[in-house]
Design a protein around this nucleic acid. Structure first.
Lengths: 159, 159
DNA sequence: TGAATATATGTAGTTAACTACGTATACTTG
DNA sequence: CAAGTATACGTAGTTAACTACATATATTCA
């Protein structure tokens, strides 16, 4: 066991990130193994448009929890891949409305079975004594109630 | 609730990363609030050298679980901050031995109480029904037994 | 109704990790 | 013991997110 794993909770951010990166790398391999040219980072945008077919840039950004510049750069890649297209909103000229192309919808169809496999695998790997999915949700909820910084401030005062 | 949180386990990598980033941001604020000029990303290196006072570049990289180029760039920053120093290993001229400076050790002394607060806060926020710290450890262990990709391959075949 | 404010999108530059590759020293082995 | 291999460190370039700033359009309210 190394120093960081031993340092426990102090290095939690590092470990979360490491885990995320590992899952993403393996995700890329899984798509590739099924002959799909798809990057895991595209998932949030594609899945969002799958559920809500026409959205503006900022609406997508809010749904996926990214900033709008990050979203714009993902959208650029997806547009280059011809998986999405966009047009100005006639009712509000500031907005650009994004939607899946036929190619994008067709790709989703082919990804569905792979998603099933990924879901089953993630379920297997996270279904331990303390369920990671649930744990994340619970921590997110905690921090929505009162941010980490605010909690530290409070604890620091009463210490 | 947004689409990504609803998509459940498929967007787990995104959520892990988001959480990690949030904790890191708040970490920066906490150090600053205690008058400390310290970035959370430095923690793994500094803490490793605190426990094991003299290490080479690659030894540190292995301890903190980063690649050596990432480690080198952290070490450069820390050297500029005069928190660490380094010298050639006389027994093996390829190696550079890294250690804390007096300033680095003194900073650790001042960080200790802040670390206590961070630990208490993280404990509070992660000590929900499913403990995030334990969950991460359990998932890491699972994936050490058999990688995520290998598991997906197996599940994909028997599906 | 026009001035101030808010919203939507876009661009530029930063950050913190990575991979790929190169060089120097050390080790191993035919 | 020299040639090949392994190890340690370093550099260059990439990636995928970010913040800060800029511009265009829409909304609000004095």
């Amino acid at each position: 066991m190394n120093v960081i794993d031993e340092s426990g909770i102090l290095a939690i951010a590092t470990r979360l990130q490491r885990l995320s990166e590992q899952l993403r790398k393996d995700g890329t391999l899984i798509y590739k193994a099924h002959g799909l040219d798809f990057e895991p980072k595209w998932f949030p945008v594609i899945y969002t448009l799958h559920l809500r077919p026409v959205l503006s840039v900022v609406e997508i950004a809010n749904e996926i929890g990214y900033t709008h510049p990050s979203t714009i750069s993902l959208l650029k890649e997806l547009e280059k891949e011809k998986l999405i297209r966009s047009k100005r909103d006639k009712a509000d000229e500031r907005k650009r409305l994004i939607q899946l192309t036929a190619k994008g919808q067709e790709l989703i169809g082919r990804m569905q079975p792979v998603w099933e496999i990924i879901i089953a695998t993630l379920t297997e790997v996270t279904n331990t004594q303390n369920n990671l999915m649930l744990a994340i949700g619970e921590v997110e909820e905690q921090m929505k109630q009162l941010s980490f910084f605010e909690r530290a401030k409070r604890i620091g005062q009463t210490d």
